[in-house]
């Protein structure tokens, strides 16, 4: 069996092709999903990629959340479908209330584009099982509205339940509360993060690694984690 992972395209999505490529490199079939089509095409998991859906009008992710594909996706996510939201996809997941909190403009107001070190805080989600807890990875980060905020009670709950999936290491690039780079839902099937694992999946195109330039592939395990989980439960 080959796992089938859907990649959603909204108007203004930018990273759907890279996400599909990451899915294929990890060994699954990438299935294009269209914002205006409620049909999830029987996929086994879904990636909401980055970009500027609907031009970030109103708030990042605020309009995308009402797309027909999201109605089906929300139900499926509640049913346990693995869903990964990257950057704008993370913003969509918060707007549609699959994940708590929200993103506001970066504290320093600059657009950030850099290779970012993250610590994997929870290696038991559908998208992180191939990492070790505490492992540090480097993936690209690029955003303007990346400052993760939530009220103290929500932040305390996320910490207590181990739902902070990734934390920024070395430098907090956007002022996110408690250095949070990504979180998961209670069940661990829905994960959202601001940095871009799909841009660190193939030598020659990724971030610099300790060994040499552009050879970093630390993002690939997001996708192999999901695939392994899907095959194990098939």
């Amino acid at each position: 069996m080959t796992a089938r992972i859907g990649v959603v395209t909204f108007p203004g999505t930018l990273d759907d092709r890279d996400a599909s490529r990451a899915v294929r490199l990890a060994g699954a079939e990438a299935v294009p999903l269209w914002h205006n089509d409620a049909d999830l095409k029987n996929v086994d998991a879904v990636v909401l990629p980055g970009g500027f859906s609907y031009g970030d009008y109103l708030r990042a992710g605020a309009i995308a959340r009402f797309a027909p594909v999201m109605d089906t996706l929300v139900d499926a996510a509640h049913g346990g479908l693995p869903v990964l939201g990257i950057c704008n996809g993370f913003q969509v997941l918060t707007e549609v209330h699959l994940l708590p909190g929200s993103m506001i403009k970066n504290e320093h107001l600059h657009f950030v584009c850099r290779d970012q070190t993250l610590r994997v805080e929870n290696a038991e989600t559908a998208w992180t099982s191939e990492y070790r807890e505490g492992e540090e990875i480097v993936v690209p980060l690029k955003n303007q509205d990346g400052q993760y905020v939530a009220d103290e009670r929500t932040l305390d709950m996320l910490e207590a339940e181990g739902r902070v999936a990734f934390r920024y290491v070395g430098w907090n690039p956007n002022g996110s509360r408690r250095d949070i780079a990504g979180i998961t839902n209670e069940r661990g099937n829905v994960v959202g993060l601001m940095p871009h694992p799909e841009h660190a999946v193939e030598a020659g195109f990724g971030p610099d690694s300790r060994e040499s330039g552009r050879t970093g592939t630390d993002g690939l395990a997001f996708f192999t984690s999901a695939i392994k989980g899907l095959l194990a439960s098939a």
Binding site: R59, A62, T94, G101, S102, I104, V149, D151
Partner: peptide, 8 residues
């Protein structure tokens, strides 16, 4: 629901 996000 739409014009504002009650979280922020």
């Amino acid at each position: 629901t739409l014009l504002s996000n009650p979280v922020i």
